[in-house]
Deep mutational scan, measured.
Amino acid sequence: MIINNLKLIREKKKISQSELAALLESSRQTINGIEKNKYNPSLQLALKIAYYLNTPLEDIFQWQ
């Protein structure tokens, strides 16, 4: 199971779900699903999230 700190990191950087979704060329619903652990992002999307949040991938997503 993958757990994530996306919501915590996103809020700390003062970025809304909609703003992050626009940067990622994704939907706000996708970001919401990832944050609620209802959806696991593809590797490509996970890497883009890490890039746009300027945060190491392993700080956002962790195996448990």
Results as ranks from 00 to 15, higher is better:
48 K>V: 05
26 S>P: 02
14 K>I: 04
30 T>E: 09
25 E>L: 10
18 S>G: 12
44 Q>A: 14
21 A>E: 03
10 R>C: 13
26 S>Y: 09
10 R>M: 08
5 N>S: 04
41 P>R: 02
49 I>N: 00
17 Q>W: 05
48 K>R: 12
64 Q>A: 14
3 I>A: 07
35 E>V: 03
15 I>V: 11
62 Q>T: 09
39 Y>T: 10
61 F>W: 05
38 K>G: 07
41 P>S: 01
26 S>N: 07
19 E>D: 12
60 I>F: 04
52 Y>L: 14
57 L>M: 09
40 N>R: 14
49 I>G: 00
25 E>M: 11
6 L>R: 01
15 I>C: 06
10 R>V: 05
14 K>N: 14
18 S>T: 13
61 F>D: 00
23 L>S: 08
47 L>M: 13
38 K>P: 02
64 Q>D: 15
58 E>D: 13
16 S>R: 06
20 L>R: 00
48 K>Q: 10
13 K>S: 09
58 E>Y: 12
3 I>F: 10
50 A>K: 01
39 Y>W: 12
47 L>R: 12
56 P>Q: 08
32 N>M: 13
30 T>D: 05
45 L>F: 13
41 P>C: 03
47 L>D: 04
25 E>H: 15
31 I>D: 01
27 S>H: 07
12 K>I: 09
25 E>S: 13
51 Y>S: 08
11 E>M: 12
4 N>T: 03
38 K>D: 11
3 I>Q: 07
5 N>L: 08
6 L>N: 03
39 Y>F: 14
45 L>A: 03
10 R>T: 03
18 S>N: 13
46 A>I: 05
63 W>Y: 06
29 Q>R: 14
23 L>P: 01
28 R>P: 15
42 S>G: 10
41 P>T: 04
42 S>L: 04
24 L>T: 15
21 A>K: 02
59 D>R: 07
64 Q>N: 13
40 N>V: 15
43 L>S: 05
4 N>F: 06
53 L>Y: 01
12 K>N: 11
35 E>P: 01
28 R>A: 14
47 L>T: 11
43 L>D: 03
53 L>G: 01
62 Q>C: 08
37 N>K: 08
45 L>K: 01
53 L>D: 01
29 Q>H: 13
26 S>F: 08
27 S>N: 13
56 P>C: 08
55 T>F: 06
51 Y>M: 10
11 E>G: 06
21 A>D: 03
18 S>F: 10
31 I>F: 01
27 S>D: 15
17 Q>I: 14
12 K>S: 14
35 E>I: 05
13 K>P: 00
37 N>S: 10
19 E>F: 10
1 M>V: 09
44 Q>T: 12
4 N>D: 04
